[in-house]
Design a protein around this nucleic acid. Sequence first.
DNA 1: ACCTGAACACCGTTCAAGT
DNA 2: ACCTGAACACCGTTCAAGT
Lengths: 212, 212
Amino acid sequence: MGKADSAADARPYHHGDLRHVLIEAALALVAEEQDWTFSLREVARRAGVSHNAPYNHFGGKQDLLVAVAAAGFESLRDRMRGAISAIDAADAALRACGRAYIKFAMQNPALYRLMFGPALAKTKGGRPPAARFAGADAKTVLAEIILRGARSGVFAVSPDDRPGQEMAVFFSWSAIHGVTMLLLDDFMEADFALDDAIKGFERTLLTGLTPR
Amino acid sequence: MGKADSAADARPYHHGDLRHVLIEAALALVAEEQDWTFSLREVARRAGVSHNAPYNHFGGKQDLLVAVAAAGFESLRDRMRGAISAIDAADAALRACGRAYIKFAMQNPALYRLMFGPALAKTKGGRPPAARFAGADAKTVLAEIILRGARSGVFAVSPDDRPGQEMAVFFSWSAIHGVTMLLLDDFMEADFALDDAIKGFERTLLTGLTPR
DNA sequence: ACCTGAACACCGTTCAAGT
DNA sequence: ACCTGAACACCGTTCAAGT
């Protein structure tokens, strides 16, 4: 971290990693303005490059936003993983994971909206946008928890029942995403505390999974 | 429907109902282009007015999009109501309502994304956007079903337990919205049929509500 | 391979008029 | 009260150069 002018330090006029810098700048703008109506030129300005430089790394503004959403999903996935890393019991892990998920969304509302908004929509060309792959990656964390619960007998689904697990993953994510969205949008009475919501959600979430 | 030139037919040069026409034009554009990146000028063009006319009815493009989202919520509410109008049993009504909800979203994916996207975000000024009121209105349909089920003893919540009902409404909507979003975004295996998803969702949805 | 500057068509929004 | 046309600053994207 000194001021040694090693080979690695010398930025060769067009610095190595603009793509990454642009995504970071866009992430910051989403957080600051709480929407994604900023211009591509503004992103370039923040990154300290000409307004055409982004076109060397992205097809256009939409493409950059998809990359931002993908970065969001990766960050979300890391939070989920971090939340469960020290937890053994599958039901406790699912609860912790859900809590981390909701927390992430509440801390980055606009980013979360972008992630599930236009960034996931099918591209006109046909092939699915990158954000969807990153989203599927986040989904994998849930799948692992479900599988663990199936193996340990904590959840009412067999370790061999792949479709049943897929179902469980699907409905777990549905419940978490649904609660998150409604919390984000303030669609509840004022006396409806966040903590109650999470507790109730956990009950709903586990009801269909735990054996009676 | 004749060609009589009655007083009602004569459009007085600046026709009566531009606000409504603009919303319809924008709705059509959302459906056609499956996003809301079209320009406000394009909407005006479709409506056959100058590109400034919209400013007599909306604060700007964002404001128009909020009105479009509000119209979407009203339409959704009508579909939900239509689906349950001839059904007595509360659990059957909840199922039918959920099915109509999902169907609406699948038929208008971009509109649904817009409704839960930036249109609901808190306005910078502070007061909540119109779309949120329309959304709360749609929520009322669910509240009525829950109350009916509570009264008839079909759901495991007391007719006097207002917070409990609010909870039930919240989690019903969460489940429906979550499933809808993930279906919309193709976040499931290819062999995961829509019908199975709906059946499973109904089970999840009712599990927490029906007495054991 | 990556970046720049000039250029083009288009957009959101404002304002002074029109009816 | 509602609509129009001109005007302004700004944007997305393209293209011919630069290094």
